[in-house]
């Protein structure tokens, strides 16, 4: 916990190894709870997709697959730059660490900006659940408007919760960049970078599932 430059080991740990192993295990347990947190939403998705397949297909077909795919690429690249950032910290490359962290931050922000325009588009077309919601589907006449509204409710909650995690991740990246700027990281002190990386990759994984489940249902129509 304490990171004065002369002693990296907190008082209650015996050695740096024990401290690092504890940190890694703790982070994985935290991610375990994150899995279950998003898992509740995926369970809701599963139940309703089973109940209302047509509405799900109708709602999904109406999402912008180009922007969705673009954002998927953006997140995958950001995972690569994050991994490279960890590698830079591990091998003591200070400047490239800052560059990779900045790149990750820029990519993450790009994702959020694109997401914002997707939301705005939905708002303009009255696809945001609420009193003014309206939806007409050419391909799926069996899809009831109310059920499509349910799809959009879930869409906004799932992507919104994911975006919230991205914002937190971006905050963590800014914190890391400041620390890296001050030269706080090196081959023996990179746990903060590594653990933030875990978190960033986890958020990427959530999107890896959200993308096909939300954007790619029955595209062949």
């Amino acid at each position: 916990m304490s990171h004065s430059s002369d002693s990296l080991v907190a008082h209650h740990f015996e050695d740096i190894e024990q401290q690092n192993e504890s940190a890694v295990l703790g982070m994985w347990l935290f991610l375990g709870q994150e899995i279950m947190f998003f898992g509740g939403l995926f369970a809701v998705y599963l139940v309703y997709r089973f109940k209302y397949p047509d509405a799900w297909a109708a709602g999904s077909t109406d999402l912008d697959i180009t922007l969705g795919t673009f954002n998927t690429v953006v997140l995958l690249v950001s995972s690569l730059t994050m991994a490279m950032g960890v590698w830079s910290a591990q091998t003591g490359r200070q400047k490239s660490l800052i560059r990779y962290l900045l790149a990750t931050l820029v990519l993450g922000s790009t994702f959020l900006v694109v997401k914002f325009f997707e939301y705005k588009h939905k708002w303009d077309y009255h696809h945001v659940p609420g009193p003014s919601f309206s939806f007409q589907s050419e391909h799926f006449p069996n899809a009831a408007e109310s059920n499509v509204q349910l799809f959009y409710t879930l869409y906004f909650i799932m992507t919104g919760m994911h975006a919230l995690h991205m914002v937190i991740g971006a905050g963590l990246l800014i914190w890391l960049i400041v620390l890296a700027w001050k030269g706080k990281f090196g081959p023996h002190n990179f746990m903060k970078v590594e653990l933030t990386g875990f978190y960033w990759h986890f958020v990427d994984i959530v999107w890896v599932f959200l993308f096909p489940l939300l954007y790619l249902i029955n595209r062949h129509h």
Binding site: S79, L80, M82, A83, E194, G197, F198, H201, F202, D204, I205, V208, F209, F211, P212, L213, L216
Partner: peptide, 18 residues
Amino acid sequence: ALTIAILKALLIVLFFMN
């Protein structure tokens, strides 16, 4: 779609997340 998603998640977990 899900098989591919699981494969992608596995790649990320195994390599990016060490």
